[in-house]
Design a protein around this nucleic acid. Structure first.
Length: 307
DNA sequence: TATTCGTGGAC
DNA sequence: TGTCCAAGAAT
């Protein structure tokens, strides 16, 4: 008797159905999901898209107030497209990563010019928009249009790493094996798949967190490979953290904070005051211009971009 | 593939 | 108190 030949690229995903995970996770979601406005029935595709841009690398609690003001100000893509990009940066406030505001503005322009103001509904169309990558395209298609996609964000990747693969953390970058696993775990039914995507993400955000996970509240703790293995700690290369204090990145933030508050061009001498050390402000300012976040004017003044 | 890009809350 | 982390994308 010969053992069956393993196909190339075989992985744990090939042996996983996920059928035992769907119902408990979705039932848990029905009882414990946070009440986020972008999940309400009246939230359309534009609202979902706005929320996904804002939620990139940003916690829900900080997104909520900006999200509400944003949709009140620009309830349709065409409303944002009609604004100057600098107005989007100003309305972005202190959410962080302000290039997301420029990209969302660019996406609204493209939607308005190329698609008649209607948010596109296929992942290929979504991927063609600025600021939309693999995750956000799948998320908008799934959450706004109920389509069946593997939605692989940091939460889902961690849940799968633990529950299925049996390790504490997923790899630093998303791997082909993770994509295969996510597709293998996807429920066949379209509506169930969309529900599963949101539910598994929420589980990672609320229970199966990066630190201080609360397995006692987990609906699949009894099937979790990592927990059943005694929750071994992550081994391998350290997951490198981010340094921020004292970097040009921090200076960029301070410069933009001044420009967001100003409603007239600001002289460079004033901008240099945001930082004690003399070299970093001009350098950071020079970096903001090619990024399209700051517009230089004749005479050495600066403002948020009008074009 | 590894870096860069903000901000603030939790511990 | 400093470290870690949060629904990634672009290059």
């Amino acid at each position: 008797m010969t053992a069956p030949t393993k196909p190339p690229h075989s992985s744990p995903a090939d042996d996983v159905s996920g059928a035992d995970l769907h119902a408990p996770v979705i039932d848990w979601f029905d009882d414990h999901a946070r009440d986020c406005p972008w999940r309400h029935p009246e939230a359309g595709a534009w609202a979902v898209m706005v929320s996904e841009f804002m939620l990139q690398q940003t916690p829900v609690s900080r997104v909520l107030p900006v999200y509400e003001q944003w949709l009140a100000r620009v309830p349709r893509p065409a409303d944002l497209a009609a604004d100057a990009p600098g107005e989007a940066v100003r309305a972005w406030g202190r959410l962080g990563y302000p290039r997301r505001a420029l990209r969302l503005h660019g996406a609204a322009v493209a939607i308005t010019e190329r698609h008649g103001g209607d948010v596109v509904g296929t992942t290929a169309q979504l991927l063609a928009l600025p600021g939309i990558g693999e995750y956000t395209a799948a998320a908008v298609a799934s959450f706004a249009y109920g389509q069946r996609h593997a939605v692989l964000d940091t939460n889902v990747r961690r849940v799968f790493a633990r529950a299925v693969t049996g390790v504490q953390y997923p790899p630093n970058a998303t791997t082909a094996a993770e994509r295969r696993l996510a597709r293998a775990l996807l429920p066949e039914d379209e509506g169930t798949a969309a529900r599963w995507a949101a539910a598994s993400m929420e589980l990672g955000a609320l229970v199966c967190t990066a630190k201080n996970e609360t397995c006692v509240r987990c609906p699949i703790a009894g099937q979790c490979a990592w927990r059943l293995a005694g929750k071994p700690e992550h081994d391998g290369p350290p997951r490198r953290g981010q340094t921020y204090a004292g970097t040009d990145r921090q200076v960029r933030g301070k410069l933009l904070a001044v420009l967001r508050e100003a409603h007239a061009p600001v002289p460079q001498e004033a901008l240099d005051q945001v930082w004690q050390e003399p070299v970093q402000p001009p350098r950071a300012l020079d970096g903001l211009v090619p990024d399209g976040l700051v517009e230089p004017l004749p005479g050495g003044t600066y403002r948020l971009p009008l074009t």
